[in-house]
């Protein structure tokens, strides 16, 4: 369980998050949606302990990500960041292998290699494992970074816009894979999405953020109403049903 209470964050004099208080339950997929600049990425960085908030507290299964030893934090929560820096000549397998760093600190063992193989298989990268990252397309690269986050083998996976640069097929495959991971209870996934229909189709819970505050939070089906979406994005929406799943269309 992630508990957030009265979390505020500011860059210089500009406030980004205003006293956020909420609880994210374990298991399942929680989607963060909201307009650009709502503070979704900042919230994820605070949860991962990478940005220090001005005030408030965060507990990840009881762990304080700001004061816990770095290694312990990295074994509790993994974060996929937006547009990570690119290292030339780094191979896919080596990148995914870095996900094991919190576990072996430089001396990988057989369990680490097995986990790397699982990550490569899970994200359909086995064929690409010996390719250098700078020879891959944006989408393939994105999948490699997601596989690294997976290999970190943490109870919580935080993904900042993982569908960036993915084609429709790989976007669907990824969401299905994440859904599967969150079903068996091993992983809890918090994911920033701009595609509301991906959230509608795959997320169990949705947190709607606007202007550094939480506007609404509920089960996906309950939250996705034209009224909430209109308030969230300041634009009218229509809610359709397609084969039992909600489909959202901006008017």
């Amino acid at each position: 369980m992630i508990e957030i209470s009265d979390l505020s964050y500011a860059v210089g004099q500009t406030p980004i998050l205003h006293g956020i208080t909420t609880t994210l339950e374990r298991g399942g997929i929680t989607a963060l949606i909201g307009p650009n600049g709502a503070g979704k990425s900042t919230l994820l960085h605070c949860l991962a302990g990478l940005e220090r908030p001005a005030s408030g507290r965060v507990r990840i299964d009881g762990l304080d990500p700001f004061t816990a030893p770095h290694r312990q934090r990295a074994r509790a929560v993994a974060l996929l960041q937006q547009s990570p820096a690119l290292v030339s000549r780094l191979k896919v397998r080596e990148l995914v292998g870095f996900g094991r760093w919190p576990h072996h600190q430089g001396r990988p063992g057989p369990e680490d290699r097995a986990q790397i193989d699982r990550a490569l298989t899970a994200f359909a990268l086995t064929e690409l494992q010996d390719r250098a990252l700078d020879t891959l397309s944006g989408g393939q690269r994105q999948r490699a970074f997601i596989a690294m986050t997976y290999a970190q083998d943490t109870p919580w996976m935080l993904l900042d816009e993982p569908l960036n640069a993915l084609d429709p097929r790989h976007a669907r495959d990824l969401m299905a894979r994440l859904h599967g991971l969150s079903r068996d209870g091993a992983r809890s996934i918090v994911i920033v999405l701009h595609d509301i229909n991906a959230a509608a189709g795959w997320a169990d819970h949705i947190v709607a953020m606007k202007d550094g505050r939480i506007l609404a939070q509920d089960h996906s089906a309950a939250l996705l109403t034209p009224e909430v979406l209109r308030d969230l994005y300041d634009t009218p929406f229509e809610l359709l049903q397609h084969k039992g799943r909600p489909v959202v269309v901006a008017r």
Partner: peptide, 21 residues
């Protein structure tokens, strides 16, 4: 510290996410 330097080579954000001080 070569292995830690490898991790640092991924960039500050990713390296810190992996638990590198």
């Amino acid at each position: 510290m070569a292995p830690a330097l490898d991790v640092a080579g991924l960039g500050r954000g990713t390296a810190r996410g992996l638990g590198l001080d």
